[in-house]
Design a protein around this nucleic acid. Sequence first.
DNA 1: CGCAAACTTGATGGCCGTCAAGCAAAGTGG
DNA 2: CCACTTTGCTTGACGGCCATCAAGTTTGCG
Lengths: 242, 242
Amino acid sequence: MAPSKYPLGVIANRLGGASPLPVADRDAIQSLPFFVRTIEAHQDIVNEDGPSTHCCMILDGWTCCYQLLADGRRQILSLHVPGDLPNLQSFHLPQSDFGMAAVTRASVAFVPYADLRKLTEESAAIAQAFRREALVAAATYRAWITSIGRRDARQRFAHLICELYLRLEAVELATANAMPMPIRQSDLADALGLTAVHVNRTLKGLRNEGLIDLRARRLVIHNWEDLCTAGDFSPKYLHLSE
Amino acid sequence: MAPSKYPLGVIANRLGGASPLPVADRDAIQSLPFFVRTIEAHQDIVNEDGPSTHCCMILDGWTCCYQLLADGRRQILSLHVPGDLPNLQSFHLPQSDFGMAAVTRASVAFVPYADLRKLTEESAAIAQAFRREALVAAATYRAWITSIGRRDARQRFAHLICELYLRLEAVELATANAMPMPIRQSDLADALGLTAVHVNRTLKGLRNEGLIDLRARRLVIHNWEDLCTAGDFSPKYLHLSE
DNA sequence: CGCAAACTTGATGGCCGTCAAGCAAAGTGG
DNA sequence: CCACTTTGCTTGACGGCCATCAAGTTTGCG
């Protein structure tokens, strides 16, 4: 996405989900103070006075939240696409328990928490939208736990694709069963709790089944219903519509 | 715990974590309207006008949040002990994406969300305590994702024990490296993303290593440091103290 | 004391991790 | 425009962790 005159427009449009915010509130969001940073792929999203005082808003590209283990292995906790607020809830925590990184080259807006807070005090609709955002984030965490804990590789992968497709569709970055998939297999592995080798084999399986196609960082879903079945996917936890 | 004259005392005492609430706020919490239900072990915590309108507060026993898969298998998302508020955040959601069940016989207080909400508007300290509670819940979700996604059975089990010990200690239900462990191995399996058989073998391994002992629903930790190492456990995400 | 639920243990197999090599694609510099 | 390099993808061989199935054995409770 080209840098626009109103960079926070993606955020303002997306907040509220199925019931978009009133124009006044959207304007208020676009008037927030912020600065934008471009983060190269696979680089951490942190700077001197980073996430502890500022809320991140993804304007372009994909990012993730992750934790590292003692032996250096990584678990990705969540993937984020344009319009997402990866650390909306983590303010006034003495120290964050997770890291944030760019999955692709990404542009991220940083908004001081203080200003966000003020906004929620001035607009009940925005406060409500933020609460909704937090609820969906928690529900998404829950879905990941279940996926990683109880589903096999094929189901996990299918589930993740379904989730990402709907989330991208909601911000008009996916349509007609096609979506960008600009992420390395090794990152997918960290997200799915697998190894890159096994992600590759699983992908091959899904391709051979005719469920999806993935070429040149573009993924095509050949049969949405079957993919949902394969992933035991039920979209209600995303609360994208009523 | 015997039914006391102030059933919500556990909650009032625990909220705020390392910086307990002022007496006035604790009194306000104990004055909330509520009703108490006793739920038998392995029964769902739901009734006609249950969790969607009422916030649950665990007074005694252990409970869990869980999701079911299409094939009937179960993933436990979180375990809850006295003082916990398992569904603090899930109000004004059209439909919950998870179930709640008693792990042991449990007594649960139900408080109307409306009254909770009012309380947060009247007391900044309580509002803050609830926010903190939500943050810790989210951090705990993240720790579970990492555990299930990237740690083997032994590490997962050790990690869970460490977490539960500290949480029980915080409400004075554990001390001197001993804690109650009133949960079936098959439930542990659902929490850890394993099978009951493998939980049993893993437990045997930890016992043989001399790390823990578990008899008659009582768990003794022989070496806290070693157990933390075995589980790659770092307590900071629980935010129990500064 | 008797039954049911939960724990324990063994045998077997499969999913997925690990190691290793080759291939394709994308970027770089001359 | 093309060697060259780097990064990421693909595939094979092998092994281990954990699931599954199938007995017992112990514990708890009426």
